[in-house]
Write a protein that binds this DNA or RNA. Structure first.
Lengths: 236, 236
DNA sequence: TCAAAAGTGTTTCTCGTACACCCATGT
DNA sequence: ACATGGGTGTACGAGAAACACTTTTGA
């Protein structure tokens, strides 16, 4: 007996299909605190509740036009929801959530993504066209969210915590030039623990030696002694 | 102006929807070689070509019945394609591939998963009901696959390579009891590099001290000196 | 001059890597 | 007896962790 494979039979074209959405967990670090962008819903269900920004993937009307890729959908939604231009934020696919009844109206499968927005760009987001309904929310005071969005946020936090130590994603959460302390605060915000200043400095030094970061001109004004500033080196 | 969010408007229910499939990259290690399970397609498009096993997510016909979860769909397909009972293999979501025209007939978004099958169970798979069209294929001799399946396989390999060193997934690719050398060969197959025997032994010893693995009764017969056997300890 | 934050030094432990060597067993 | 693979020892270096210390600045 031959088993079904992903394109067994063209009659499958008539089978019921789910709606497919992208949802975004958009992180930034403000005031040494990890925050995500929430949207207040204007329609039922969950009207008035907070939720993750997102939208449906644009699918063409059939064979001739198949629409946008899911990556394109995620980038487009990120741009629409934040007002930031493409490439201003780091975007990565997280997980696809597809439990039945996660949306009471119909079957919706949601491809979740997370994005990292630099703190110097974060204020521009709330000042954007959707200001009234969008807000940066500290994880410590996260409200109950619509649908399974709390679960999605939880998954995103676990992902970023696991990734920050071995992938250069922390640089997406600091300004273009940054001090040792500023980068350390990003790590502390994400891991929600304090780091030894001296030890982190040595770790920073290794990144400097590897060429991952380099010193930038100028100094950062602080409450006391001005600090040297560095920049991320995308090559090597 | 209010922005679109994932459930803005119920009129969205009438928008065109994509078909949603699950595709599986099923790994095992046979003869110190990392292999994946391929299916030979019986229908167009790509008839006769090799492809990943998979199938469509079952979506109910609307509001009342919304069908199975995507996790359920992946487990079901794994069971159907391999004949192995639930829980016999490790299964984890990989990435969702959704480029337009990846299937020429219609818009298909595929949620890819990878599975790890123990080598003692792998022979049962090819002996299953779909034997004529299923085959374990060495990665070194992977043929061109249908659709974007080569790309999916590539992504799966990168994932498992990155994960084996910090997550206890190697134990899903050895028999219930295993020797130090057997576990080492799994690492070597996945990373495609040789490991120092002495050093790997020390690493193994640490896992033993941590309680991650424990000694099992009996010895494994080899070409020379019989080796001690161990088992994975799922607790702690 | 004092607090605050930048920046340095020291010590200890764990772990990865390289490499040499001994031991038990089947042929 | 000898090859094969199991099992052990040693030495070096990178890096995580704990903690004490010095230096530079603004107020």
């Amino acid at each position: 007996m031959m088993k079904t494979d992903s394109t067994k039979d063209t009659s499958i074209e008539r089978f019921p299909r789910p709606a497919v959405a992208v949802d975004l967990v958009i992180f930034t670090v403000l005031d040494t605190d990890l925050k995500i962008l929430l949207i207040q819903r204007g329609q039922a269900p969950h009207e008035g509740d907070w939720a993750l920004p997102g939208g449906f993937v644009r699918v063409g009307d059939g064979v001739i036009e198949q629409g946008e890729s899911v990556e394109e959908a995620a980038h487009r939604e990120l741009e629409e929801e934040t007002g930031l231009p493409r490439g201003a934020a780091y975007l990565e696919q997280l997980y696809t959530f597809g439990d039945p009844y996660r949306d009471p109206r119909m079957r919706v499968i949601s491809i979740a993504w997370y994005a990292l927005v630099r703190p110097d760009l974060a204020p521009l987001v709330t000042a954007g066209s959707d200001a009234a309904a969008a807000s940066w929310c500290s994880l410590s005071e996260l409200p109950p969210l619509a649908f399974d969005h709390n679960h999605i946020v939880q998954t995103a936090i676990e992902r970023i915590r696991g990734k920050i130590d071995y992938a250069p994603v922390a640089f997406e959460l600091v300004p273009p030039t940054f001090t040792v302390a500023e980068l350390r605060q990003v790590f502390e915000a994400i891991h929600a623990t304090a780091y030894d200043r001296g030890n982190f400095r040595r770790r920073f030094k290794r990144m400097l030696d590897n060429g991952l970061i380099e010193q930038a001109p100028g100094k950062r004004q602080t409450a006391s002694k001005p600090a040297r500033v560095y920049r991320f080196n995308r090559r090597h």
